[in-house]
């Protein structure tokens, strides 16, 4: 979609002219996918919320300089990915702070799935909860670029070309990242994926 036909880019141009309602509309539309991406990248819901907040604040601050040269969602996810990468780099520079993660791990996507679904009694729910936890764990173990490519692939807003722009690589490299990520997941999850629960469309 050309940027000119992008309603979100048009909304952002209204934000540039001081339209606060246009900005809140954009936050409402994108808060869920941005927090999802941050949560699965950082593994901590509080940090994910803070990071997502920073993404939107940066977008607001950049409104005056915003030019609708690309789709708004591509631009916003690029900000989100850059902030996630900064956070990952910051953690690797200050490994001592990562120790805090150990007690917060109870809120990671993997653990949340386990506690949420395994607590419910029906066996199919147990199986589903176990599978979701395994999927979350397998996704967390992927290299950052494969994980981000896979997670962005879930977003219907973004085409493959736009995912490539967010990742800063070519279209073929992007598809290769997704393919490799999925191959790893298939290998790790094969026994779970073969259960009837997931092999059929619901």
């Amino acid at each position: 979609m050309p940027a000119n036909d992008d309603p979100d880019a048009a909304a952002m141009l209204r934000v540039k002219r001081g339209d606060v309602a246009a900005f809140t509309g954009l936050v409402d539309k994108y808060k869920q996918p941005i927090i999802n991406l941050a949560w699965r990248t950082l593994g901590d819901p509080t940090e994910a919320e803070d990071l997502a907040q920073n993404v939107f604040v940066q977008a607001y601050k950049s409104a005056q300089r915003y030019e609708a040269t690309a789709k708004f969602s591509t631009w916003l996810f690029t900000i989100a990915r850059n902030l996630c990468l900064n956070e990952i780099r910051r953690r690797s520079r200050h490994p001592a702070e990562s120790l805090d993660q150990t007690h917060e791990d109870s809120e990671s996507p993997v653990h949340q799935v386990e506690t949420k679904d395994l607590a419910s009694s029906p066996p199919d729910q147990l199986l589903r909860g176990e599978l979701e936890a395994k999927v979350e764990a397998a996704i967390q173990e992927l290299p950052e670029n494969q994980r981000t490519a896979l997670l962005l692939c879930r977003e219907e807003e973004l085409s493959y070309e736009e995912i490539a722009k967010v990742l800063g690589c070519s279209l073929s490299a992007t598809k290769s990242l997704i393919h490799r990520g999925r191959e790893t997941l298939k290998q790790k999850l094969k026994p779970y994926l073969r259960t009837g629960d997931w092999s059929e469309e619901e």
């Binding site: 808060k31 869920q32 927090i35 999802n36 941050a38 949560w39 699965r40 819901p45 994910a48 919320e49 996507p109 949340q112 799935v113 949420k116 599978l131 979701e132 999927v135 979350e136 996704i139 896979l150 692939c153 879930r154 999925r182 997941l185 298939k186 999850l189 994926l193 073969r194 997931w198 092999s199 469309e201 619901e202």
Partner: peptide, 14 residues
Amino acid sequence: ALSRVVKKLPDAAV
């Protein structure tokens, strides 16, 4: 099956 699983992953709480 993997596509369905990935698509159905739960959303983070907002």
